[in-house]
Amino acid sequence: MKEHKKLLEDRLLMSFYEDPSNRALFKRKRYDTRASQVLDERFKLYYLKARMVSYTDKLTRHYSREFDKQKRFQRNQLHLDTPQEKGEDLTAISLIPDKDITTDDAVVKAIPDILPTETLQKKYHELSEEKKTILTYFVFDRLNNKEIAAEMDCSPQNVSKLKIKALNELRSVEANERDKETSF
């Protein structure tokens, strides 16, 4: 056994030779050809079983992952056409607001109308036309930076930069107003 030390470092062989009868056959195989044949047959069977166990393990893991993915997908799917409550025609899709402006929104179509104070309205009027346009697209049309950039024929980075600057200017005015109120 000492001369086959490297061979016995293999985990599969080590587990095969844990069986005392296999170990005994291994020791006798040098002198007995029949022991060598029996040992070979036993190892072939053992190796086949090990491969089958490994294969079934891999299949089980694969199919359980696929099954889990499929179930997670089904759990997370929206069922938009199913009724919200029994006996009602109200569905989840009917609760999603339209992108079109409703009659309530038609009254307010200018940003100064939604600003709460006069100082904020004045600051808005001091903004550049580009910044005003970007804020209008952002607030009322609900466009993202890429869509606004396409409308204004500029880069999305430029839109983002101008939008952030405009919002920061309005926020600074609002912060100054809050500071004035708390100082009294």
Rank of each mutant, 00 (worst) to 15 (best):
I111K: 04
S54K: 15
L8D: 00
T117N: 06
F73D: 13
E41A: 12
M52A: 10
D32H: 04
G87R: 10
D104T: 12
I96W: 05
K27P: 01
A35N: 06
I134M: 01
A24M: 08
Q84R: 09
T133S: 11
E129R: 10
P97Y: 06
D89H: 10
D98L: 14
R51D: 04
Y17K: 00
R72E: 10
K131L: 00
L115V: 07
Y46T: 09
H62M: 09
P83I: 00
D68Q: 11
V107L: 14
Y55K: 14
Q84E: 04
Q77K: 15
D98E: 14
Q84T: 08
L115H: 07
T60I: 05
Y63W: 10
L12R: 04
I101W: 13
Q37T: 09
K5G: 00
L120M: 15
Y124T: 03
L95A: 10
A50L: 01
T60E: 10
Y47A: 06
L78Q: 11
T119R: 15
K5D: 03
A35M: 03
S21H: 04
R28C: 02
K99M: 09
L115P: 08
E41R: 14
K86G: 09
T133C: 02
D32M: 01
Q70A: 13
L90R: 12
K27F: 04
E129K: 13
H79E: 07
A110L: 11
R72Q: 12
D100E: 15
T103W: 12
D89N: 13
T33H: 07
E88D: 11
R23V: 00
A106Q: 15
K123P: 01
P116S: 10
P83M: 01
K27E: 14
L90M: 05
V38Y: 03
P83Q: 05
R28M: 11
I96R: 11
A24N: 10
K109S: 13
R61P: 02
A50I: 05
L7W: 01
A110K: 15
I93D: 10
L127W: 03
Y124S: 02
Y124W: 06
T91I: 06
E18V: 00
I111E: 03
S21P: 00
P20D: 02
D19F: 01
K123L: 02
E129A: 09
V38C: 02
K109N: 12
T33R: 09
D98F: 08
P116Y: 05
H62K: 13
K132M: 03
Y17R: 01
K49R: 15
S54H: 14
H4T: 01
L25K: 02
K131G: 03
D10C: 00
Y31Q: 13
A92N: 12
V53T: 12
A106G: 04
M14L: 04
P83H: 03
E126K: 11
R72I: 08
D105V: 07
S128E: 05
L48C: 04
T117A: 05
F67A: 14
K132Q: 13
G87Q: 08
N76S: 11
K58N: 12
E126G: 02
P112M: 03
T56N: 15
E130S: 10
R65S: 11
H62N: 08
D68S: 14
S15F: 00
R34C: 03
